[in-house]
Amino acid sequence: MPDTISPALRDGPRARPPVVDPPAPRRPVWIRPVLFPVAVAVAIGAIFISVYLSAFHAPGARDLPVAVVGTSAEAAAVAERLPENAPDTFRVQALPDRETARTAVEHGEVFAAYVPGPGAPELFHAGAHGPSVSALVTGSFGEAARADGERPTPVDLVPASDQDTRGLVVFYTTFGLVLAGYLFGIMTFQLGPGLTARRRMVSLAAFGGAGGLAVASVVSAFGALPAPFLGVAGLVALVAMAVGAFTMLLVRSLGVLGSSAAAVLFMTVGNASSGGSLPAEFLPGWLEPFSAGLPVGVGVRAVNGLAYFHGDGVLSGVAVLVGWTAAGLGGLLLVERLRRRARREA
Results as ranks from 00 to 15, higher is better:
14 R>A: 12
15 A>N: 02
16 R>I: 08
16 R>S: 15
17 P>E: 08
18 P>T: 00
23 P>L: 05
23 P>A: 06
24 A>S: 13
25 P>C: 00
25 P>Y: 00
28 P>A: 13
28 P>D: 14
29 V>E: 14
30 W>Y: 12
31 I>Y: 08
32 R>S: 12
33 P>Y: 01
34 V>Y: 07
37 P>Q: 03
38 V>F: 08
38 V>D: 10
39 A>F: 11
39 A>T: 12
40 V>N: 11
40 V>G: 10
41 A>D: 09
45 G>F: 01
46 A>F: 04
46 A>Q: 12
47 I>D: 05
48 F>H: 10
48 F>S: 13
50 S>Y: 11
51 V>W: 00
54 S>Y: 01
55 A>V: 05
55 A>H: 01
55 A>P: 10
56 F>K: 06
57 H>R: 13
58 A>I: 06
58 A>N: 14
60 G>N: 07
61 A>S: 14
63 D>V: 02
65 P>C: 03
65 P>V: 04
67 A>D: 04
68 V>I: 11
69 V>R: 01
69 V>L: 03
71 T>D: 15
71 T>C: 11
74 E>C: 07
74 E>R: 10
74 E>F: 01
76 A>V: 06
78 V>E: 05
79 A>K: 06
80 E>N: 13
80 E>S: 14
84 E>C: 07
84 E>V: 11
86 A>W: 01
87 P>H: 02
88 D>L: 08
90 F>N: 05
90 F>S: 06
90 F>G: 05
92 V>T: 08
92 V>H: 06
93 Q>N: 12
93 Q>T: 15
94 A>Q: 10
94 A>E: 11
94 A>S: 15
96 P>S: 15
96 P>Y: 06
97 D>Y: 05
97 D>H: 09
98 R>G: 10
98 R>D: 14
99 E>C: 08
100 T>Y: 02
100 T>R: 13
100 T>I: 04
101 A>L: 08
102 R>I: 03
103 T>H: 13
103 T>I: 11
104 A>Y: 01
104 A>I: 08
105 V>F: 03
106 E>H: 08
107 H>K: 13
111 F>K: 05
112 A>F: 02
113 A>V: 06
113 A>D: 07
115 V>R: 09
115 V>Y: 01
117 G>V: 09
118 P>Y: 00
120 A>T: 14
120 A>D: 14
121 P>E: 04
123 L>E: 06
126 A>F: 01
126 A>P: 12
126 A>S: 11
126 A>I: 05
128 A>H: 04
128 A>T: 10
129 H>G: 07
130 G>Y: 02
130 G>M: 04
132 S>N: 14
133 V>C: 04
133 V>R: 02
136 L>G: 07
136 L>Y: 08
137 V>N: 02
138 T>A: 04
139 G>F: 00
140 S>G: 09
140 S>E: 12
141 F>V: 06
141 F>H: 04
